[in-house]
Simulated assay, not measured.
Amino acid sequence: MKNAILALGAAALLAAAPFTCAESQYKLLVLAIPNKYHYEYIPVARDSLERLAKLHAFEFTYANNTGVFDGDLRQYAAVVFLNTPGEELNPSQRARFEAYMRGGGNAVVVHRAAITPPSAVPNPAPNAWPWYERLVGRTFKIHPMLQTAAVDVVDRDFPAACGLPPRWIWSDEWYETTDPYKVAIRPVLNVDESSYDPTKIWPGQVATGMGKSHPVAWYHRYEGGRVFVTLLGHDVAMYKDPQYLSHLMGGIWWAATGKGQRTD
């Protein structure tokens, strides 16, 4: 009987060991609200994030409405706007998020979440949010049709570049942006406009490209926290791609912890 009890005790310890080793390092809030052009990605991205969370020992709240911003955001190491722009938040939720960032919170902005109603124009939209526009660091202008292009890594020491080759073949909507607020950003990836047609767009619209300096992923500090932005991530299949997920995970890791950036 004694041996049986000891065996059961050892088995219990072994069963508990993985849970202890995988204790959560931090917690994320991921906002993913379906919209006209981005909805199929939601369950796929959630599944991929669950696998990343198990692999990298973090946890997250996956929300499909903005009600979570009515609660205490201080529990989250970073807030991820996953194809969901900040304009979805109501005024009180915006104020809570601003306070969260000023208190040392952090943000990750993915693809569609970087499209904001421009505020630095003669007649800004009623739901324009200049503060969030500056958080993103750039203002969306237009994008040509989805095309394959070559992406160059311009900051090899940043975690979102880990696992990517120096020149990466990727297919996406190559957002064109402007900088009305003169925000200083640190580019991580730059798309080579000579590798696709920046003018290929729908009738009645005009895209001209941005020239040699066309960042598609960057980071900067804003208020009291860290912000990582990637304009990549239009298609649902991308949220299954190992290289894209490595890129996204690196940005999340840095935003949540401030770690992983080589400084030597």
Rank of each mutant, 00 (worst) to 15 (best):
A12D: 00
A12Y: 02
L13G: 10
A15N: 09
S24N: 14
S24H: 14
L31K: 03
I33W: 05
Y37H: 11
Y37W: 11
Y37C: 05
L49P: 05
E50I: 07
R51Y: 05
K54T: 15
A57G: 12
F60D: 02
T61P: 05
A63C: 06
F69E: 03
F69P: 04
F69Q: 01
G71F: 09
G71K: 13
D72R: 12
R74T: 12
Q75T: 08
Q75P: 04
A78F: 03
L82D: 03
N83D: 02
E88T: 06
L89A: 08
S92Q: 15
S92A: 15
R96N: 15
E98L: 05
E98W: 00
E98P: 00
Y100I: 10
Y100V: 09
Y100P: 01
G103R: 04
G104N: 02
G105W: 02
A114K: 03
T116C: 07
S119T: 10
P122E: 14
P124W: 05
W129G: 06
P130E: 01
K141D: 09
K141C: 05
M145N: 15
Q147G: 10
D152N: 08
V153F: 04
P159C: 07
A160P: 03
A161R: 00
P165I: 00
W168N: 01
E173A: 03
E176W: 10
A184E: 13
I185G: 04
I185E: 03
R186I: 07
R186T: 12
S195Y: 07
S195K: 06
W202H: 14
P203R: 09
P203T: 01
G204V: 01
G204T: 00
A207M: 10
A207H: 11
T208Q: 09
M210W: 12
H214M: 02
W218V: 06
Y219Q: 09
Y219L: 06
V227Y: 06
V227H: 06
T230W: 02
V236E: 13
A237G: 13
M238P: 03
Y239K: 02
K240H: 08
L245G: 05
L245H: 02
S246E: 11
L248G: 02
G250Q: 06
Q261V: 15
T263L: 12
D264H: 08
